[in-house]
Amino acid sequence: MRVLIVDDEPLARRNLAVLLARDPALLVVGECGSAESALAAIATLAPDLVFLDIDMPECDGFELLERSGPAPRFALVFVTAHHQFALRAFEVGALDYILKPFDDARFERVLARAKEQLRLPGASARFLIRNGATLEVVKFCDIDWIEASDYYVTLHAGGRAHMLRRSLAELDGLLATHGFQRIHRSAIVNLDRVGALGIGADGEYDVVLASGARLRMSRRYRQAVRDRMAGM
């Protein structure tokens, strides 16, 4: 597992590096003390896991995440001394959130979760959806399909609909490696939920899900869907 550490405090970077060095399955590919160096490292080093400080002088961790691209292809753990950012961290898709100072046991639990997600991404990855005063867990593997809803998306999972403030383009990149496929400019499906490809009277294809939902598929995505279905 390729790990990148991003923190403007040298001692904090060093502490994380020492903890990570204990695990032979991990390789620290870089340590960055600024947002600019972190953006360059993310682009060139292709980390699997990033430990990211939130409070940095050039730009905070959330802004750095936005600047890294619409669909980061790495697992993310925020590390911060400020507890008030916890909810937002999960809303932007962070795997976990470590509050400084932390002990070895807490760090080991976070690391175990990260390793599990990178081994079995479809089974362990999840969204946390705010619903009033609670956060609901929606696992990627439980989602049937996703549709665009203005500035939000709607996750359809187990007969329920969950609103998430993310763009469909962002989720397209994030979920492509988790068994999802774009079928229309406003829809993404979980390929494990596809029961059939139907052909309408007009010759256009529909995607028929196991739930019975029938979704129109654009011509531009037809070959990609068929190729991925055939390769599964």
Rank of each mutant, 00 (worst) to 15 (best):
L4G: 01
F62E: 10
L19G: 07
L11T: 14
Y151W: 03
A187R: 08
A35V: 09
A112L: 12
Y151C: 10
G132I: 11
S186K: 08
D144K: 14
R88H: 04
I143Q: 09
R113H: 07
L171A: 05
H156V: 10
L64W: 04
E147V: 11
L118T: 08
I143N: 07
G203N: 05
M232N: 01
F180V: 06
E31A: 11
A46I: 09
P121S: 04
L118F: 00
S218T: 00
D202C: 12
R182S: 02
F180L: 07
E63W: 00
S149P: 11
M229K: 05
L19C: 06
S186P: 03
M56P: 02
R119P: 00
E116D: 14
G159A: 08
I54C: 09
I199Q: 09
G179D: 05
V225C: 08
L168R: 08
L99R: 01
N131F: 02
R219C: 01
I199H: 06
A169R: 15
A213S: 02
A133C: 12
L191M: 13
L19K: 12
R166I: 13
L175K: 07
D172S: 14
V79Y: 00
L20F: 00
A105I: 15
R165V: 09
R165T: 10
V208W: 00
D144E: 15
V92N: 04
R126M: 13
I183D: 04
D206Q: 06
A105V: 15
D206L: 02
D60C: 06
M163A: 14
H83E: 13
G33T: 12
K115Y: 00
E170D: 13
Y152K: 13
V138C: 07
A41I: 11
A21H: 05
A21S: 12
L39P: 09
L39K: 08
F127L: 15
H82G: 07
R166Q: 14
A43C: 08
V189I: 11
